[in-house]
Amino acid sequence: MTPEILFEDNHCLVLNKPAGMLSQGDETGRPSLVSWTAEYLKVKYRKPGNVYVGLVHRLDQPTSGVVLLARTSKAAGRLSDQFRTGAVSKLYWAIVEGRPDLPEGEWVDHLEKDRTTNRVRVTEEGEGKFARVAYEVLTEGAGMTKLALRPSTGRSHQLRVQLAERNLPIVGDRKYGSRKILRALDGEPRIALHARELSFTHPTLGETVRIEAPVQADWPESSPAWWGSSRGR
């Protein structure tokens, strides 16, 4: 799996993460977005020793799309502040089983993570972490719906859980109730969730940077037969 470079300068690197790739290394020792980036920078700029790569946010392993990395500790601090304060604008595409009652709207929940099982659940108001996402129906057919999702918070598994809570599991997300199986380009499981767009303020220039990540061949909508004859608008 090879990430696609979408933007690069002395302070930031924005990549299109393939589904199935870890954002950050774990105990398995498998390649991750961070390790790939470190090796890429080391080779390209002929840097001896360790190379700094700051992961200021992440995507779940079965999710694809745009990820912002920092190339300096100063940039990492400033970008992390933007994510923490909600100053970063994010757009996701998701294909779900079923259809929302309304063509657009907003969902608000409180989420709690069980670190033993690595699962998140919706809890009572006043408990857990506040989560909000705006949604819009883009396309529908064959019992599935493509949604545009704009979260204003960044909780662990947030979109996966908020959709599943409304009986709209993301296609391929077996952990949260999907009946379907999807495969990434390397054969590993993936889900039909793609981080489509990211807008942030450049950490040194102060300019708005907007990056769009194209879907790859394993995105289910890429197949002409995916929606069947009942494809909507």
Rank of each mutant, 00 (worst) to 15 (best):
S89E: 09
G49Y: 02
L102A: 15
S73L: 11
L55D: 03
E127Q: 07
T123G: 01
T2M: 06
V120H: 14
T37Y: 01
L102G: 05
T28K: 08
T208L: 15
G128K: 00
L68G: 07
R150F: 10
S230E: 09
M1D: 10
E112D: 09
Y40Q: 15
V122S: 07
L198I: 14
V133M: 12
Y92H: 03
L33E: 11
D60Y: 06
H110M: 09
G187N: 01
R160C: 11
S156Q: 13
E165Y: 06
A75L: 08
Q82E: 13
V51Q: 08
K180W: 04
E197R: 14
I5F: 10
V137I: 05
V34L: 06
V53G: 10
G143R: 06
L15K: 12
A217R: 09
R183L: 00
N10W: 04
L182R: 02
R121K: 11
E188W: 04
K44Y: 01
E106D: 03
A38K: 13
L193A: 09
S152G: 01
I5L: 12
L159A: 06
L13D: 07
T208I: 12
S229R: 12
A131I: 09
F83H: 14
L22F: 15
A148W: 02
L205E: 06
P103V: 06
Q162H: 14
R231F: 14
E188I: 04
G126C: 03
R84Q: 14
